[in-house]
């Protein structure tokens, strides 16, 4: 592969890691995911139960969030999942609204868009930003394929895969590649990014479309792929959790690896490889 452009600044080597298309796509992607997450949770609040199969068997959900009004006037929120029932008062099922009063709602106000209960508005946000995510993804993928960046940067090499075990141990010890090795994404990074780009996001799109009754008429196989409409809805929810997990780890890694350098790279494109690391 052709190497990334590089330069020397103040005695340190810098590589041009993120071209402007990727930088803009990244910030749009982050905004889309935040809106899709919060508006999605607003939609979820309209019926906070998940099922497996084509239809909803109301008596046997896979998971459900309940709001119970107690005899003494207080409220208890409960998460029912994995065969257990967990008291989640304060966050799930019963939480305080913007004015501080207790509300019976599955996801709390601070996790939903809009904060107040409004299914129609949540849907409007969700679908508008779904289109934006798709358009953004199309630009990113087209650019990545035409420039060869997707293959060069994200496809794991044989060495990447071979060194995966060591890479995991290094990450857990918060020790990150230095010098020459820092020029490229390591195997674990590549797999995580590829997992989002080629795995989680396409699954979100497909399972989201599978819930559409019009799409179901034209392409019933899409829902069947997930085991039915309600399964697709459950997969949509679980993949959301996986994406949230990715973002949490992603942000934690940025913090651990050096937030100034990492932020500078995603804003200006130039990734600085410190001089002392070069010789390390």
């Amino acid at each position: 592969m052709a190497g990334l452009p590089e330069r020397r600044r103040a005695g340190a080597l810098e590589v041009y890691r993120h071209p402007w298309v990727v930088r803009i796509a990244h910030v749009l992607n982050a905004a889309c995911l935040l809106v899709l997450l919060t508006s999605g949770l607003q939609i979820f609040n309209a019926h906070p139960a998940l099922y497996w199969g084509e239809t909803s068997h109301f008596e046997s959900p896979v998971a459900a969030i309940r709001s119970d009004l107690n005899a003494d006037g207080t409220m208890t929120g409960r998460l029912q999942a994995l065969g257990g029932s967990f008291d989640t008062t304060g966050v799930l099922g019963a939480s305080r609204g913007a004015d501080g009063s207790w509300e019976a709602r599955a996801m709390p106000a601070w996790l939903t868009l809009p904060p107040y209960a409004d299914l129609g508005a949540g849907r409007a946000w969700h679908f508008a930003f779904a289109w934006l995510l798709v358009a953004n993804g199309a630009v990113y993928l087209t650019h990545g394929m035409l420039s060869g960046r997707l293959r060069a940067q994200l496809l794991p090499t044989r060495e990447d895969l071979g060194g995966l075990g060591r890479s995991i141990v290094e990450h857990l010890r918060l020790r990150f590649p230095h010098g020459e090795a820092a020029r490229h994404y390591n195997g674990l990074q590549k797999l995580a990014y590829l997992g989002v780009i080629a795995g989680a996001l396409p699954i979100m799109l497909a399972s989201g479309l599978a819930m559409s009754p019009t799409v179901h008429a034209a392409a019933p196989w899409l829902g069947d792929m997930f085991g039915g409409r309600q399964s697709a809805r459950t997969v949509h929810f679980l993949t959301m959790l996986a994406l949230v997990g990715f973002v949490v780890v992603h942000l934690a890694m940025v913090l651990a690896a050096g937030p100034v350098r990492e932020l500078r790279a995603i804003i200006t494109g130039w990734y600085r490889i410190e001089k002392k690391q070069e010789s390390a």
Binding site: I43, F44, A46, H47, A49, Y51, E54, T55, S56, F58, L119, R123, M211, P213, H216, R229, Q230, R233
Partner: peptide
């Protein structure tokens, strides 16, 4: 398919 998310 209900707008709330359930199906029968």
């Amino acid at each position: 398919d209900c707008v709330e998310g359930w199906s029968c």
